[in-house]
Design a protein around this nucleic acid. Structure first.
Length: 886
RNA sequence: GGGCACGUAGCUCAGUGGGAGAGCGCUGCCUUCACACGGCAGAGGUCAGAGGUUCGAUACCUCUCGUGCCCACCA
């Protein structure tokens, strides 16, 4: 090794360099962008994580992808910005603080609204920013000078404006609707905050006695209904049957008597009822079931709310008042049984809505809330997707997205919480309602108690992050954003709302591309969760294996829209690759003798391995460029991996050693030029993915002192023009022979120290030319003492032969091998070759194949057949030479 | 109930209408001067199953089975 070799450590130590490199980039302002800088604009806004949260693998994946994209766009000369920020995360954050209070034996009501909010802000001060700091250790490069928060003053103004404007346009309204109620959190939820889970419940059949029934006939015995939530019968205000149902037609218009409360209930006819389900008669509870509610509206039924906000039965539930809804379920069933009205109880599996946040079963409840009328907004959003103004990667995401938009119901945006944007609605002393930014003049105005769904503010993020509603230079420059990177799981929660709001307030789509990645799971595809004990902390990974390895391991399996399996040992594998790259760079740099990357040697002075490597580099470059553009991370990762490890390190570095260590000065200089060029290109192409190790190698390679001369600020390489495909096939001849010699040695247990000698008989003129010209290369790669290219292999006792794709060779063995073992091996090989011949013969005898298959395919098969036959002959002869029968 | 994705080596995944590949793991040999976080070689697969299209299907079509996910107001 040259003595000018910089002192590069033998093993790459991420922890020793990452923090310094990151600080250097940041100091040099490489993350920062100005709107008036040159270059085509490119922008990404971070999906803002919960301000009080901490980094999990999902964040690591999402942000690594964004970082890779933005780093590459910067290198491509774009005026690229990545806006960081956090979300106040309404319910989630409030719950955390409430839990803290509970540990002190307090509830938020003990503190009161104002003190509680102070407490949340204090928690935000304490824990806020942690998650963004953690992004730094991953190497993420957002513009830290532009950090935003969904609940800061700027974003507050935006939220208020949107609410006031939409109200004025009739797109926000207040109304009494059946909403999803979370009895644990005591707040309304939107439809998508409800998760449906299959539950085995009971389908309870019971009988309502008819009013004025005489009990003499079956019909007068009453009418049987079925329900899974029998406690809701306390709020029944009708029984519905299908109008065509012969069984019940005569009962329509009569009434039944409620067994527990003083009420007569009419029997009505409605098309909604399915005569085939249950008894064909449905109890109608308009205040507690969406279908029943619709029927109630059609028939003008009373809407009787029989529960309170905690899910206990209210006064309206008569004798069951005060019981929790589930206790009431059991009690009502028992009471019905006591009255002889219980007919049948069957197990029944059905989906039940659960609160995404608290996990409790959601109660449909009639309630006064604020809504966004989504119809027109959703239609406009769908149109933008159909028109291709927004595209999805993977494309199929668009279809489910459109279907979802199509079935959208109005969005319930009010929450009975305290942490969030307070609704800008004011109630006057005489009951007047005003929606406006400021408290109205005069006495007695009271602001609405509720806050907005957290997604209400995050839907504005792509433009509020740039300062909207102010007309900022940033907004003009970088909005609409370029790409939104997010898991497919929040397309409905967030992406759809951003699209609707963006179109409504900016007349533009908020992003041109939505790149959906999958969810990070464990190595068997199982969801990571604390209870399974399979959670991986990305910070642990970075600490143990480095940021590059963590990034590489994540992206290596992150195909668009597909869940990403991750195991710690795979990150370890990624670290080995990083180390491989480091050592290939270290070897290269150490042998350059101060020579810097520059012009390649002229065509005529390039060796076969030079031309082969440059061709391989060009192929990798093209593949990786395309894959970067398509957000196809596994292909990017594999392309770089394969080139670095298999082609550059395993073959080229071995092949180049003769020239590097030799005394032909010009050859040495040429070899160094190719080495330096290829390493430099490789570092650039890998830089977005592996920012640290590439930067660490770039500096000694180029003599850069970092800062503004960092790899991070270097240009993205232009695609190489000409590739020499010829080199690939010629080098393959060399590789074919070298591999066979290795195999031969391994099979015959010939120690590497034994320099074997070879007579080679090439199969054709090309192989002859290549092997004659590059005998030295083959000798050094295969560890040969001698290589002679001959017209015909010499007949020699005690020699064995090697068959390789472009010819055969003979090796004098001088009794160093086990003849028995070799003969057995030859026999097996010969049998295999015979089977090949038979198979290919059968195929070529098939007229359909010969006449219909493309000519080149048939020719290929014929060649294979000829080769197999030659192999049989060869092996037969070799066995004979061993004095053994085939 | 509707929809989407997926079943290829022990594990995680590539792949193409012409007898299947990689990484990890496993086995053997190698302290070869960039790397033992390494090198070379090897074992291991009826490409989920059944039909169909085709001269030929792991690949295209249909069905079945299995897995995962999303959506959903039939009591």
């Amino acid at each position: 090794m040259s003595d000018v070799a910089p002192q590069l450590p033998k093993a790459y130590e991420p922890s020793a360099v990452e923090a310094d490199l990151y600080a250097d980039w940041e100091r040099a302002g490489l993350f920062h962008a100005e709107p008036d800088a040159s270059g085509e604009p490119f922008s990404i806004v971070i999906p803002p994580p919960n301000v009080t949260g901490s980094l999990h693998v999902g964040h690591a994946l999402d942000n690594t992808i964004q970082d890779v994209i933005v780093r590459r766009e910067r290198m491509r000369g774009k005026n690229a910005v990545w806006i960081p920020g956090t979300d106040h995360a309404g319910i989630a954050t409030q719950m955390v603080v409430e839990k803290q209070l509970a540990a002190e034996g307090l509830t938020r009501h003990d503190l009161g609204r104002e003190a509680f909010l102070e407490r949340v802000w204090a928690w935000r001060e304490e824990s806020g920013g942690t998650i963004l700091r953690q992004l730094r250790v991953l190497g993420c490069s957002p513009d830290w000078e532009r950090e935003a928060f969904t609940f800061d003053e700027q974003r507050n103004r935006a939220v208020t404006k949107v609410f006031v404007d939409w109200y004025a346009q009739g797109l926000i309204y207040r109304g009494t609707r059946l909403i999803n109620w979370d009895p644990a959190l005591r707040t309304a939820l939107s439809d998508i905050e409800v998760e449906h889970r299959e539950i085995t419940g009971e389908l309870v059949h019971f009988r309502y006695p008819l009013v004025d029934g005489d009990g003499a006939s079956d019909a007068d015995g009453g009418i049987v209904v079925a329900t899974t939530r029998v406690e809701t019968m306390l709020g029944d205000t009708a029984i519905a049957v299908h109008p065509d149902d012969e069984r019940y037609r005569h009962l329509v218009g009569r009434s039944v008597r409620h067994p527990f409360v003083e009420r007569e209930i009419p029997i009505i006819a409605d098309d909604y009822v399915d005569p085939a389900f249950g008894s064909g008669a449905v109890k109608i509870t308009p205040a507690h079931d969406p279908n029943d509610h619709a029927i109630g509206e059609r028939h003008g039924l009373a809407m009787l709310d029989v529960m309170d906000d905690a899910g206990a039965m209210s006064e309206a539930a008569g004798p069951f008042a005060g019981l929790d809804r589930f206790a009431a379920r059991a009690a009502v069933k028992e009471a019905l049984d006591g009255l002889g009205l219980l007919v049948e109880v069957k197990d029944h599996v059905h989906p039940v809505g659960h609160s995404q946040r608290s996990g409790v079963i959601v109660e449909p409840r009639l309630s006064d809330q604020w809504f966004v009328a989504v119809r027109s907004l959703a239609e406009r959003a769908a149109e933008a997707v159909r028109d291709g103004l927004v595209t999805f990667v993977p494309e199929r995401s668009a279809r489910s997205f459109l279907e979802w938009l199509d079935g959208l119901h109005d969005w319930c945006i009010s929450r009975q919480l305290w942490w969030g944007h307070r609704i800008p609605a004011w109630y006057g002393p005489d009951g007047e309602l005003r929606v406006q930014a400021e408290q109205p003049e005069g006495e007695g105005w009271v602001q609405d108690e509720d806050v907005l769904d957290t997604w209400f503010s995050s839907q504005l993020w792509p433009f509020t992050a740039f300062g909207w509603p102010d007309a900022t230079p940033e907004l003009a420059r970088w909005y609409p954003t370029s790409t939104l990177v997010t898991g497919y799981d929040i397309n409905t929660f967030w992406v759809s709302r951003m699209l609707m709001a963006g179109l409504a307030f900016t007349d533009e789509v908020p992003f041109r591309v939505v790149h959906n990645h999958g969810l990070v799971r464990d190595e068997h595809g199982k969801k990571m969760s604390k209870s399974f004990g399979n959670v991986i902390d990305p910070l642990d990974l970075v600490e143990a294996y480095g940021a590059d390895a963590t990034r590489f391991a994540l992206l290596r399996n992150a195909a668009p829209g597909i869940d990403v399996p991750l195991a710690e040992e795979w990150v370890e594998g990624a670290k080995r690759f990083v180390n491989k790259l480091w050592n290939a760079a270290r070897f290269t740099i150490s042998n350059l003798d101060g020579q810097r990357p520059g012009a390649l040697p002229p065509e005529e002075r390039r060796t076969l391995e030079d031309r082969w490597l440059l061709d391989a580099l060009a192929a990798m470059h093209a593949e990786v460029d395309t894959a970067y553009d398509a957000y196809d991370w596994p292909v990017v990762a594999r392309g770089i991996y394969r080139f670095v490890w298999d082609e550059f390190a395993d073959w080229y570095l071995e092949a180049v050693k003769d020239r590097i260590y030799g005394d032909d000065v010009e050859a040495q200089r040429d070899a160094r030029a190719v080495l330096a060029h290829v390493l430099e290109m490789t570092l650039r192409l890998a830089a977005p993915l592996l920012p640290f190790v590439t930067e660490a190698a770039w500096r000694p390679l180029t003599g850069s002192a970092g800062g503004a001369a960092s790899l991070m600020a270097a240009d993205w390489p232009e695609a190489a023009g000409q590739v020499n495909a010829d080199a690939r096939s010629r080098f393959a001849i060399v590789q074919g022979l070298v591999r066979e010699v290795h195999r031969f040695r391994s099979q015959l247990r010939i120690a590497p120290s034994v320099r074997i000698e070879l007579d080679v008989e090439p199969a054709d003129a090309t192989a002859r030319a290549v092997l004659a010209e590059h005998a030295g290369l083959v000798r050094s790669l295969a560890g040969l003492g001698r290589l002679d290219v001959v017209d015909a292999l010499p007949e020699r006792a005690g020699s064995s032969s090697i068959v390789f794709p472009s010819g055969r060779a003979s090796v004098p063995l001088e009794g160093v091998i086990d003849l028995e073992a070799e003969a057995a091996r030859l026999r097996t090989e010969r049998e295999r070759a015979l089977a090949d011949v038979a198979r290919l013969d059968a195929k070529l005898a098939n007229e359909g194949f010969v006449s219909r298959a493309p000519a080149d395919v048939v020719a290929k098969e014929r060649e294979k057949r000829a080769a197999a036959e030659r192999a049989v002959d060869e092996l037969t002869a070799r066995l004979a030479a061993f004095g053994v029968d085939a």
